[in-house]
Amino acid sequence: MKMTKRFFFVFLAVFLLSISTAFAAQKDAPAAPTLSVEGQGQGTATPDMATVTIGVTTRADDAAKAQNDNAWVAAQIQNAVEGLGIAEKDIQTRNYSFYPNYSTEKNHQNEITGYTVNNSVVVVVRDIKLTGKVIDAALNHGANEISSLDFSASDTRAVRKEALLNAVQDARDKADVIAKGLGKRIVGIQSVSENTGYLETRRFNGNMLLAAAKDSATPIAPGSLSMTATVHVDFILSD
């Protein structure tokens, strides 16, 4: 019985010694070298939506007339746009301003010469083929400003995936080249982080649209939109 107990303690001592030796060896072993690489990728999307900002500015000697004229023109524009199939919920007022105009003549600076009313309306065009028709309808019914035209995409998931995959591939390609130059091999990944931007909208200048629409139907070319993604990868290297 005493021999069995003595054997047990000897075995336990040897076992604990072997574990401590293994831990010490592991602690003293150099960490595997790592390679930090940043990759960038881009994804593209075809726009399927447009946002048009339409403005109506009216001036009159009388405040009520300036307001009434503006309201009448704004109603004509809204009716024309809705007639193209644009839903009422996609037509919203962005800005409305009313202010007096003052004389610029010497000794008459404080005299009111009239009133100006400006009404800006944002129209969301969900059928992108109607974009040019919406602009033409607004201008033909009294609009005298097209502040902006922005193209966007309603679903960004596919373009984000494309951008991330391209960024990962870019990081791996760079890492393979660097590792080969160092005489190493990539055997694993220590950590990964990513940063994805927003899908860039494509904006047209309002003055250009007004000039284009004077003599003919407004030409609209949506083009394409892009999104950029960045990934940071720490690769594990081995001989």
Rank of each mutant, 00 (worst) to 15 (best):
1 M>G: 13
3 M>F: 10
4 T>D: 06
10 V>T: 12
11 F>W: 15
12 L>Q: 13
14 V>N: 06
15 F>E: 13
19 I>E: 08
21 T>N: 04
23 F>H: 10
26 Q>A: 14
30 P>A: 15
32 A>D: 14
33 P>H: 04
34 T>A: 06
35 L>V: 05
38 E>C: 04
38 E>D: 12
40 Q>Y: 13
40 Q>M: 11
44 T>Y: 13
45 A>Y: 07
47 P>N: 08
56 V>E: 00
59 R>F: 06
66 A>F: 03
67 Q>W: 04
78 Q>W: 02
80 A>D: 02
80 A>F: 05
89 K>S: 13
91 I>M: 07
93 T>R: 13
95 N>C: 07
95 N>R: 15
100 P>S: 12
108 H>F: 08
109 Q>T: 14
112 I>K: 14
113 T>Y: 07
114 G>D: 09
114 G>E: 09
117 V>P: 01
117 V>W: 03
118 N>F: 02
118 N>I: 04
120 S>L: 14
123 V>T: 09
127 D>F: 04
127 D>Q: 14
128 I>P: 02
136 D>P: 03
141 H>M: 01
144 N>D: 13
150 D>W: 02
150 D>P: 04
152 S>C: 04
153 A>V: 15
153 A>N: 10
154 S>I: 14
154 S>L: 12
155 D>C: 06
155 D>E: 14
157 R>C: 02
161 K>D: 15
162 E>C: 00
164 L>F: 07
165 L>W: 06
167 A>V: 09
171 A>I: 07
179 A>Y: 03
179 A>K: 03
181 G>K: 12
182 L>C: 03
188 G>P: 05
189 I>H: 00
191 S>I: 02
197 G>Y: 05
202 R>E: 04
204 F>G: 00
205 N>M: 09
210 L>T: 04
210 L>P: 01
211 A>W: 08
212 A>N: 09
214 K>S: 05
219 P>T: 13
228 T>V: 10
229 A>I: 06
229 A>S: 14
231 V>R: 00
232 H>L: 10
232 H>V: 10
234 D>P: 03
237 L>Q: 03
237 L>H: 01
237 L>G: 01
237 L>R: 05
